[in-house]
Amino acid sequence: MLDRSDVTAQPLREDGRLPLVVRPVRDDLEAGPFLRANRAAIDHLLLQHGAILFRGFSIDSVERFEVVIQALTNEALAYEYRSTPREKLGGATYTASEYPAMHTIPMHCENAYQRDWPTKLLFACARAPRTGGQTPLADMVAVMSRISPDCFDSFRTKGVAYLRNYHDGLDLSWRNVFQTESREEVGAICRRLEIDFEWVDDGERLRTRQLAQGVARHHALDQTIFFNQAHLFHVTSLGRETADALIETFGLEDLPRHACFGDGSEIPSAQLAEIRAAFEAEKVHFDWQQGDVLLVDNMQVAHGREPFTGDRLILASLCDAYSKCR
């Protein structure tokens, strides 16, 4: 248990379990020593609540955030085989996904499109937005309760195949995704991560396909979690009009991103709508305050991002890997 002479701890909402909000009760409480001394209790609370918001510890710089990362995790992950634009700021610290401020980032579990993923996520608010910009959370058990057994079973038995085509000027380039200028290194990374790849159009364009899980067993709980990003990668995540235009231009095989079941069959639109509605219904919001740190169990809890105004800067770190490729 946390020492209540140091902090208070209670859920953000009386009717919910996440996030648990931990606040210092005295001004001289230093984050690093406190977190290191209470690591076991914090890990236990994370399994109970799924997410913990540390508020009032003034973690608003890369240097202070690195202290928190080292105190609360065993291993920081490099962000490879990227899905979103990020900047590395030093050590284990990246910016959170840098999509334009007017866009919503849909709810997801980090790297669930891969066979490698972090079990812990850490975020820190270096600069709070003027409006919006929340990082909504969703309890995956509650999300799964809204997904029909037929839909869940389809993903459990078939898995998900993620297709990516790296067209010039569309989405992320292969150089960004794989963080290299070398085609040979791309091949080595793909083989290590069990990603099928080929260079098409006379070797000018990279195409990748990875078969990954539809559901996964939680690393510490006796529980199977709906764990994939099919609803993000599927072309319809861009809206029907944009999806139709991309399909007309490229066809399904050459889309910049797409997802289907692992056996190659298309995911029914009704199931995708069901999944998106389940995530939307379970969103829990809080407004970022400068210096906040959010610790997330990446399998129990999904996250996203709301549109914002102002100069928002959220730091991020992906930690403590689970891998099916090691």
Results as ranks from 00 to 15, higher is better:
residue 153 D to R: 15
residue 256 P to G: 12
residue 51 A to G: 04
residue 246 L to S: 03
residue 180 T to R: 06
residue 83 S to W: 06
residue 296 V to F: 00
residue 92 A to L: 00
residue 197 F to V: 03
residue 49 H to N: 10
residue 14 E to I: 00
residue 144 M to H: 05
residue 116 D to C: 13
residue 324 K to I: 06
residue 226 F to E: 00
residue 211 L to M: 06
residue 112 A to N: 06
residue 180 T to H: 11
residue 81 Y to W: 09
residue 95 T to H: 01
residue 277 A to T: 13
residue 176 N to P: 00
residue 185 E to L: 14
residue 291 G to F: 10
residue 307 P to I: 00
residue 317 S to A: 15
residue 125 C to N: 05
residue 39 R to E: 10
residue 132 G to H: 04
residue 68 V to S: 06
residue 218 H to M: 04
residue 215 V to N: 01
residue 286 F to A: 08
residue 61 S to V: 09
residue 102 M to K: 12
residue 183 R to M: 12
residue 160 V to E: 09
residue 86 R to S: 05
residue 66 E to V: 04
residue 277 A to W: 13
residue 252 L to M: 11
residue 259 A to I: 13
residue 95 T to F: 04
residue 151 C to D: 06
residue 275 I to G: 06
residue 244 D to Y: 05
residue 112 A to G: 08
residue 285 H to F: 14
residue 20 L to P: 08
residue 150 D to Q: 14
residue 71 A to P: 02
residue 98 E to A: 12
residue 38 N to T: 14
residue 142 A to Y: 07
residue 248 E to I: 01
residue 35 L to S: 08
residue 300 Q to S: 12
residue 142 A to K: 12
residue 139 D to C: 14
residue 257 R to Y: 15
residue 69 I to L: 07
residue 205 R to W: 09
residue 247 I to R: 11
residue 50 G to S: 03
residue 15 D to Y: 03
residue 160 V to C: 10
residue 294 L to K: 07
residue 209 R to Y: 00
residue 283 K to E: 14
residue 313 L to T: 09
residue 207 R to G: 01
residue 265 S to M: 05
residue 96 A to D: 03
residue 150 D to N: 10
residue 221 L to I: 11
residue 265 S to C: 08
residue 220 A to T: 04
residue 190 C to T: 07
residue 239 G to Y: 05
residue 254 D to Y: 13
residue 100 P to V: 00
residue 133 G to N: 04
residue 249 T to C: 10
residue 243 A to G: 08
residue 132 G to R: 08
residue 153 D to M: 10
residue 262 G to V: 09
residue 200 V to G: 01
